[in-house]
Structure formats: structure tokens, C-alpha cells
């Protein structure tokens, strides 16, 4: 049971980091504000599954940052300072350490998501909305999906943390991923469209449309997937380059879900495996 010791240690450590704590507060506050404002800005039944889409922009910005920040330092920081050796000299095996860190730090992230989204949900339902069995199930699914989205970036951070040897490199890698995936990803799409147009590979008329295989690749970024799953499953949207009836099957929400789950599982597994076999 020694992973529990590590989990509680890491949970408290995360809680003690001021940056992470304030970011978590910010995330929860953003969710609550979203839930508060949503009924005013919308017409018709507020409980009709559009809240998820309303929150997407906020969540795809804040949650990756929080997830990566919580995990990128989990191993490498302790390895660099020698505390990891200390930790492993105590009767903890490596699985315990990684699993404990996963539960402790991940628990902190999950707590933020759950508190934020359930608080927001309550503000959406009360006093203007209503609760039904289907809306509850759908909202729970939404929370699960968002948790999984947090897990994607948490896993990426953990992989970085186990794969790097210095804290500095881990920091660069973590913010690199965040920068590429979250900040400039949309620009990459426009940029590549522009380049392909210049090269004469695609039809230059506006709006420039990428070929389907490139759309698929571009759309395989976790945030894009998350957005598409919400649009496809929760809002039942059937427009846009991905979800319209003319789009090929592999751009649809079902494939998006599969790719998303791969994102949620693989980085975590890779990070875990690497840590098990690497020299300290």
C-alpha cells in the first residue's frame, strides 16, 4: 500500500505549489463563471447540452496547462535533486512511485475538474433549468470526457518527466508541447493551407480547404478531438469540414473518440514503462 503514502505526499506537494493552486482556482472560477453566464447568454431550454460547447474554448486552454504543469515535474524534479533515490531507498518500488504520483497529482487535477464542472452544472440547472435522467447522464459523460482530456495532458507531462534528465529540459519540452498544441495549432492549419496553395497542390479559392488526410492529421490533436467529440455527440452537429455529411467516415466523431482514447492512454503507459526500465 505504499503508493498511498506517495499519493498523499504528492497531493500535498501539489497543493503547496502556489502556481498550480492559483491555476486550479482560476480553472474552477472560469467554470463557475461560465455556468453563471451561460443561462443569460442563451435562449430556450438552458439544460439542452449546449453548455459543453460553450465551455470548450476555456477548457481547451486552461486544462492542458494545468495537466502539464502538474505532471511535467513529477519525476524529473525529484530525480535531479536526488530525492528520487531517497524515495526508492525506502521500501517503495518504482510502480508504487509512479502510481502514487499519478493518483496524488492526478487526484488534484480531477478534484479541480469535478468541483468546477459540477458547480457550473448546478448553476446552469438552477434556477432556470431542469434535471432529467438523460441530461444527468449526458452531463456525467461530459465530465468524464473532460477528465480524460485532462489525463491526456497529464500523461504527456508525465512522459516528458520520465524521459528527460534535467528539469530545464522537461520545462522546455512541456511548454513546447503546450505552445504547439494549444497556442499555435490553428495557425499551423492556416499556414499549411497557405503553403500548399503556393505549391499549387490544392485549389487556391477561399476558403482554403485542406485535403482530407491532412485534416485528419491536424484534427488528431487532443484539443481538436475534444471539441469534435463534444460537437458530434453532445450537440449533434453535422456541419463543418469534419462532421458534415460529405466528410469521409474517418473524420467523424467515432474515430475522433478512438484517437482521443489513444491519447488518453498511450502517453501514460509510455511514461510509466520508460520509468520502469530507465537507469536513475
Amino acid at each position: 500500500m505504499s503508493w498511498r503514502t506517495i499519493a498523499s505526499k504528492d497531493y500535498h506537494e501539489s497543493k503547496d505549489s502556489r502556481l498550480v493552486r492559483y491555476l486550479l482556482y482560476l480553472f474552477v472560477a472560469a467554470c463557475l463563471i461560465g455556468g453563471y453566464v451561460f443561462p443569460v447568454t442563451t435562449t430556450g431550454d438552458v439544460t439542452k447540452d449546449r453548455f459543453a460547447g460553450f465551455m470548450t474554448a476555456t477548457i481547451t486552454l486552461l486544462l492542458p496547462l494545468l495537466g502539464i504543469l502538474l505532471s511535467y515535474n513529477a519525476i524529473v524534479g525529484e530525480r535531479e535533486s536526488g530525492r528520487l533515490a531517497l524515495l526508492l531507498s525506502l521500501p517503495h518500488n518504482r510502480q508504487d512511485v509512479v502510481f502514487g504520483k499519478l493518483v496524488g497529482r492526478g487526484g488534484f487535477l480531477a478534484l479541480g475538474v469535478i468541483v468546477g464542472l459540477f458547480g457550473a452544472g448546478a448553476l446552469v440547472i438552477y434556477p432556470f433549468g431542469s434535471v432529467s435522467a438523460t441530461s444527468t447522464v449526458s452531463y456525467l459523460a461530459y465530465v468524464l470526457l473532460t477528465l480524460a482530456f485532462g489525463a491526456v495532458y497529464f500523461g504527456i507531462g508525465l512522459t516528458i518527466s520520465t524521459a528527460t534528465v534535467s528539469k530545464q529540459r522537461a520545462t522546455v519540452a512541456a511548454f513546447g508541447v503546450f505552445f504547439v498544441f494549444v497556442i499555435v495549432w490553428d495557425a499551423i492549419r492556416d499556414g499549411s493551407a497557405f503553403l500548399l496553395d503556393q505549391a499549387g497542390l490544392i485549389d487556391g479559392t477561399l476558403p482554403q480547404e485542406l485535403p482530407n488526410w491532412l485534416l485528419f492529421l491536424h484534427g488528431a490533436e487532443p484539443g481538436m478531438l475534444y471539441e469534435r467529440i463534444i460537437e458530434g455527440f453532445f450537440e449533434g452537429s453535422e456541419s463543418g469540414p469534419y462532421l458534415s455529411a460529405e466528410a469521409p467516415w474517418y473524420l467523424g466523431e467515432w474515430v475522433a473518440l478512438v484517437v482521443f482514447l489513444v491519447w488518453a492512454v498511450v502517453p501514460l503507459l509510455v511514461g510509466y514503462r520508460r520509468f520502469e526500465v530507465t537507469d536513475l
Binding site: Y36, P39, V40, L123, P127
Partner: peptide, 13 residues
């Protein structure tokens, strides 16, 4: 909670 709809105060929940 009622997003500043003052009519709620006449017959509060």
C-alpha cells in the same frame, strides 16, 4: 442566482 431578475424577490423560492 436569478441573474439579477428582481421579480424573484416578490415570490422567493
Amino acid at each position: 442566482l436569478w441573474r439579477f431578475d428582481a421579480t424573484v424577490l416578490v415570490s422567493p423560492p
